[in-house]
Every structure is written in structure tokens, then in C-alpha cells.
Design a protein around this nucleic acid. Structure first.
Lengths: 329, 329
DNA sequence: TTGTACGCGTTATCAC
DNA sequence: GTGATAACGCGTACAA
């Protein structure tokens, strides 16, 4: 815990000079620089970030707010953010919001108190004044906001793709699982699916779910087969739910994909390892995290960016919970 | 961004008085307190944590260092830590170490620079002087250290249990997957398994793996069946690898658990949703995270704890990748 | 090229 | 009960 003073004393110079060599700012004679560098090394000195932060009124910290790191989709986002931030010497204060407005505000509050220079958030109301009042850049991740920078994927198109693939692979009585209504991306994919289903006049029904939790996923799955045992195609709200559905289908002796096809959403790492492996809509979560971080950094350093909204395309990953499409001709 | 000065001015008192009411320290007349409280409310004032931290030389921040949040075991630990910390008004600076010594040191370094009051780390060498030199409390999580507080589970016993269950369920030619050699818990469970296997003179072979990554898990699984197609029981190094093995077994048409039994380790949330669901050794990850946080908080606040090492028992979760044990009599 | 002195926002120690 | 004021460690005018 040596301070700049200790270094100055040891090197027989003033703190100003030490500061200059540390920050490579202003002129300093080569000899004195060497003296200072030696002292720094000897004392194992590193600048106190807190003092820096206080003086400059900004830190090297950013706030990251995710709904729940326990949901396998988010670690990938988090990791993308972390890698990019780490590379640029920013550190992350992390919190889980549980999609809970109060917790969210508490975190944003303490982020500010700690002089974070930016925030990345997956919130359900990006337009609340919790964010608009902030004087530091905010990037919404996995969420859309018209007037703030955001990084997300095309959920609606994802829903459409899922429905199209279901149809082209011959499902006739489709069940669409509608994710939690307050989670925007969940609704987007749901709407996208309905759109295509109605366009094609396919008969479908809906199972409403209210969370993405593991524990409840099994319940939705049971409810689904309870109400619609004859369904022959299931568009799940995400991969966790899809996995639960697959599990339940097995338990009931329904063959996948022969009797019933299943399509998930997200393409979490484990999807490929299921048996049968899960067909799903891929979101580039890690890359989304990286880009969000990149965007935020640019915003922090340059104050603006050309493209405030980055939408990633999604695509269908064909695995073994869907049948092979028949090629005619 | 009102400061304590603004509040003082508005309330027509000195900053000292404001500080007293904020921190509930020292005497202050009821009337003045009300005036101050009103001013605080009106200005929406919250104390600047950075200034506080600078003066007190300690923050409300703790550092959390985990190998890789993308490995499904760690989000649970992280969540446990976070919940407990959040409840006690501590915030978390989070980093992934990738089991990489340099990255680890970098993080510890910046933790210190930011005045964190404690560190929770899953490191591979808890005894390095990176930690022993630290002047703040450290708790090792999912790792053991003789002379520092640590929270972990009984991996060795876990390995023993896995082997016993394998044997009692009739496997004769067992393959044990040895996790990365530098990761202590992986070696513990491996050793535990060998111990029981040798005691019982069961024939076994070993597949050496060097990571827990999803991508590579599939490779180890292929290698396993490539080398030991006739194996009838597999003790995997964790649930990810077990899942890959299960997947590969299916692909090769080997029936699980009839032809080959599989036991994982960790009991990550998805294990229950696999088909067949995965028998595994359960570690109470969330609770371990919570306890580690609790331990650290106590260390921070009281400087010592009675029980520095908290070892959690593990237990077998019987699911469908193992056969039912035969009860005689 | 280098040093002095002030301010960043708080808290704590004194006086009053 | 309350108010000045000196730290905490750093960066930067400004003076030298």
C-alpha cells in the first residue's frame, strides 16, 4: 500500500513528478524518470484507483446488470462483456436483477455511488427514468430501446424461422410456448411465431409460462402434454423449457422427432449435447456481450457512436429434435 | 450528484452535521435532523462511496474471482455469493480467471487498487503469495487451503460414492475420467473413485481430460468409446462431460443404463432434465456460495471466525443413467 | 524540467 | 449540539 508520496520521497522528487511518469503526461527528464521507475518498482507501487476516481470523478468501473446469471443464456453474455472490458482495462461490478424493478434501482444507485463510467443492463423497461436520468452512457443488452444504444438479436424473425421450420417439416398441430409477458425478447419470438402460423393457417395452441426457471420448466412441460397430448410440434420459449419438454416427451413415450418435433431458442451450449440434440434458434450471445461492451467503451471514450443499435441475425440450428426436410426434385 | 456540501447549504447547517445524521453518529437535535433529512430528500442525495472509501481506506466492494462463469457449475456459486453480499450491502467486482495465473494476479491487483474489503476466489494455488501477502480477508471457494478460510465440498468422498454406486449397480469394467490435473477438486474426486475401485479390485481404466469445456467434452467422450468400447460404467469428471458421454453413448447405440451406466458430478440444474436424467454426485453449489460470502463478511466485520473451513457433504442423486440397485432379502 | 498547493467528497477530531 | 478543518491519495494548474 505504498502511496505516491512514498515513491516521491524515495526517488527524491515531488509527487507531481511521480504522477507525470506514472501517467506519461508532461515532460520529465530521462534520469528522473529512471529514478522514479526504480522507486516504483522497489516499493511495488500501484496507484490507488479510489483516489484517482475521486479526483477525476470517474472510475475504470462499469456496472453490469443481468436478470439471473443462473439462467444458462446469461453467462455467455456476461463472458462476452467481461472479456472485452478486461481487454480494455475496465472492471465490472455485477448484479442480478431477478427482473425486479426495486433490485434494479438499488444496483443502478450503487453503481452511480461508485462512480462507474457506464452501465450495461438487460432491463425490462429501458425507457424508465431510472435510465434516462443517468448522466453516464448506458447500453441495453438483449433488450431494445429506441432512444438508447442497444445490442440484441432479431427475436421476431427467430420466432418466424422456428414456425417456418416446424411447418416445412410437417407439424400440423403446433404448440407455441409463450414466455413471460414482461420479458420483451420472449414476446418478440412468440409474436414472430404466431405471425407465420396464422399466415399459413396452421392450427396451434398456446401455453403461457411466467418464468425461465429450471424448476418451473418441468411444470410447463407437464401442463403442455396434459392439455395438448396430440400436439406434434412444440416451439419452446427457450432452450431450458425445450429441454424440459424433451424430457417430458420421453417420459410419456412420445418419440422425438417422429411423433413430435421440438425447437428451442438461444442455443445454449448444452443444447448440442442433449439426446436427441436440440434443434434451436441460435443467438450469438457471447458476441452480443462483446459488442455491447465495445459500444459502451466507445461511448465512454468518444461520447458518441454512429450505430447506436446493433441487431444480430439469428438462425436455425438443425439438430435432431426436428425431422429432415423433404427435398422434392 | 449532489454532495454533502449542497445538502449542508440547503439545510443551513455544516457538513459535519449532515455527516452525523447520514451516519447516525453523534448527537444531533431532532429539529436539525429533520431539516437535514428534508434537504437530503429534496436533493436526492446519496453519499459518494468513492470519497468514503478513500477516507476510510475501505469500500463496500468485494472481489469475486471464478474460473469461468460459462461453466454451468459456477453461476450457482456466483449467485449464492451475490445474494448474500447483496443482502449485506456489499457489491461485487467480478472476474473470470480461466485458471490462468496471470489473469488472476491482474484481477487481485485491481481489486486491491479499488479498496475491496475482501476476496472470494476459486484459485488453483491458494497458497501462492498472491494471496498470503494480501492484507484483507480471503475466502477460497470450491478450493481447499490449509491456512486460509475455505468453503468446499468433500470431493474425495464424492468420488468414493460414485465408485461404490457403480459397483453396487453391477458395472464390471469401469472407466474413470480424470479431470484436469491442476484442478484440485477434479483430482480429489478422481482419487476417491480409484481408492474404492482398487479396494474392491474392480477392473478400470482412465481417460485423462484437460478441461471442462463444452467443445472438448465431446472429444473426450469420443476418445473414451474409441478406446474402451466395452466399458460398462463411466464415472465422469463432471456433469458436462457426463452429458457429452451420454450423448455419444446414444449415438453409438449403447443403451444407458442397461449397457453402460454413467455418473456425473456437480448436479448442475440441467442434469435432471436430460433424457435419461443424469445420476450424479450433488454439490450444494448455491449454498456453498452463500456460506463463503457469509464467512467473508464475518471475517471483514469481526476479524475472525471460529470455523475457518466449511466442508459440505456431497451425496448421490439417483436418476436414470444408473440401474436400480438390487435389494436382497 | 520540476515543485507547490489546491480540490475531488467524506469522515473524524477537535474546539466552541 | 454544532461547526471548522485536517486528513484520505491523487492529478493538475501554476509558479519557479
Amino acid at each position: 500500500m505504498a502511496t505516491i508520496r512514498d515513491v516521491a520521497k524515495l526517488a527524491c522528487v515531488s509527487v507531481a513528478t511521480v504522477s507525470r511518469v506514472i501517467n506519461k503526461t508532461g515532460y520529465v527528464h530521462a534520469d528522473t524518470r529512471h529514478k522514479v521507475e526504480a522507486a516504483v518498482k522497489q516499493l511495488n507501487y500501484t496507484p490507488n484507483e479510489v483516489a484517482r476516481s475521486l479526483y477525476k470523478r470517474k472510475s475504470r468501473l462499469i456496472g453490469l446488470l443481468l436478470p439471473d446469471i443462473t439462467n444458462p443464456y446469461f453467462p455467455q453474455l456476461a463472458r462476452g462483456v467481461e472479456d472485452e472490458m478486461q481487454k480494455n482495462d475496465f472492471r465490472i461490478i455485477f448484479g442480478n436483477s431477478d427482473e425486479n424493478h426495486r433490485k434494479e434501482q438499488e444496483y443502478i444507485q450503487t453503481f452511480i455511488q461508485n462512480n462507474v463510467v457506464g452501465v450495461i443492463s438487460s432491463t425490462n423497461d429501458p425507457n424508465s427514468d431510472t435510465y434516462s436520468k443517468l448522466k453516464i452512457p448506458v447500453v441495453f443488452l438483449d433488450r431494445t430501446s429506441t432512444d438508447s444504444p442497444s445490442v440484441y438479436s432479431d427475436g421476431r424473425e427467430g420466432g418466424r424461422i422456428a414456425a417456418r421450420e416446424m411447418i416445412s417439416r410437417g407439424s400440423k398441430r403446433i404448440t407455441v410456448m409463450q414466455g413471460p409477458v414482461h420479458i420483451r425478447p420472449a414476446q418478440d419470438r412468440f409474436q414472430g411465431a404466431l405471425e407465420v402460423l396464422e399466415e399459413n393457417k396452421i392450427s396451434y395452441n398456446v401455453i403461457q409460462t411466467t418464468s425461465f426457471s429450471f424448476a418451473e420448466a418441468e411444470l410447463w412441460a407437464k401442463e403442455l402434454f396434459d392439455k395438448h397430448l396430440d400436439t406434434d410440434g412444440i416451439i419452446a420459449s427457450n432452450d431450458i423449457v425445450a429441454t424440459a419438454v424433451l424430457h417430458e416427451a420421453h417420459r410419456l413415450g412420445r418419440r422425438v422427432p417422429d411423433d413430435v418435433q421440438i425447437i428451442g431458442f438461444d442455443d445454449i451450449p448444452l443444447s448440442a449435447l442433449l439426446s436427441p440434440s436440440l434443434s434451436t434458434i441460435h443467438q450469438p450471445a457471447y458476441e452480443m456481450g462483446r459488442q455491447a461492451a465495445g459500444l459502451l467503451i466507445k461511448l465512454i471514450q468518444e461520447g458518441f457512436v454512429e450505430h447506436r443499435n446493433i441487431q444480430f441475425p439469428v438462425h436455425f440450428i438443425e439438430r435432431d429434435t426436428t425431422r429432415k426436410v423433404e427435398h422434392h426434385g
